[in-house]
Amino acid sequence: MYITVVHEITEPSTFWSAAQEAMSQPMPEGVALHGVFPSSDGTHAVCLWEAPDQQAVREMVESVVGQVSKNDYHEVDAVNAVGLPA
């Protein structure tokens, strides 16, 4: 399933540093990050994940950036979505 995470970032430098570090590490089995779409000022972002369930993404994201961002998780409606990875 595809999951979007909408980040409201309170500490951009900490968030982006932690995110870069996490992306350099292997992802958990079955979890893939397909896209990161930050705002120009770094205070908001939308990320597109693929995972077996929403909880797998939530656990990873919260452990990396949960202290410096409010994160909203949404399962993507794949039938009506446009541009999902093939």
Rank of each mutant, 00 (worst) to 15 (best):
E11S: 12
D53T: 05
V76Q: 08
P26L: 13
A18M: 02
M60A: 11
A19H: 02
E62G: 00
D41V: 11
V64A: 04
K70C: 03
H7I: 04
P26M: 12
D72V: 12
P26Q: 08
H7W: 09
P28Y: 02
A86V: 10
Q20I: 11
S13D: 09
W49T: 01
D77V: 03
V31Y: 08
F15V: 00
H74G: 07
W16S: 06
E59M: 03
H74Q: 10
V36Q: 10
E29C: 04
V82F: 14
R58L: 07
V68A: 03
P12V: 00
I3Q: 02
A51D: 02
A51V: 00
I9Q: 01
V82S: 11
Y2K: 01
K70L: 12
T14Y: 04
S17W: 05
F15K: 02
V6H: 15
V65H: 01
M60V: 12
S17G: 14
D72K: 15
V64N: 02
V6W: 13
F15A: 02
D72Y: 14
G66A: 05
P26W: 12
E62N: 09
G30Q: 09
V65K: 02
V36G: 09
V68G: 04
E62P: 00
M60T: 09
V5R: 09
D53V: 05
H74W: 09
P52I: 00
I3A: 06
V68S: 06
H34L: 03
A45G: 12
Q55F: 04
I3H: 06
E29S: 10
P28H: 05
T43H: 14
V79C: 09
F37I: 13
H44R: 15
S17A: 14
V46K: 11
N71W: 00
V57E: 01
N80H: 15
A78P: 00
G83F: 03
E50T: 02
E29H: 04
H34P: 08
V31S: 07
A45C: 15
H74M: 08
G30T: 06
Y73I: 02
A78L: 00
A81H: 09
E11K: 14
Q25T: 03
A45P: 12
A32G: 08
V82M: 13
A86G: 15
N80M: 15
G42R: 08
Q25K: 14
A86D: 15
L84I: 08
C47H: 07
C47W: 00
M27A: 15
V64M: 01
R58W: 08
H7Y: 14
A78C: 01
G30L: 10
F37A: 12
H34N: 10
H44D: 08
Y2P: 03
P26N: 13
Q20C: 13
A78W: 00
A81T: 14
V76C: 07
W16T: 06
L33Q: 13
A19S: 05
Q67Y: 11
D77T: 06
P28F: 06
S39E: 08
K70F: 05
V79P: 00
A18D: 05
G66S: 04
E50G: 08
E62T: 05
M23N: 14
F15N: 06
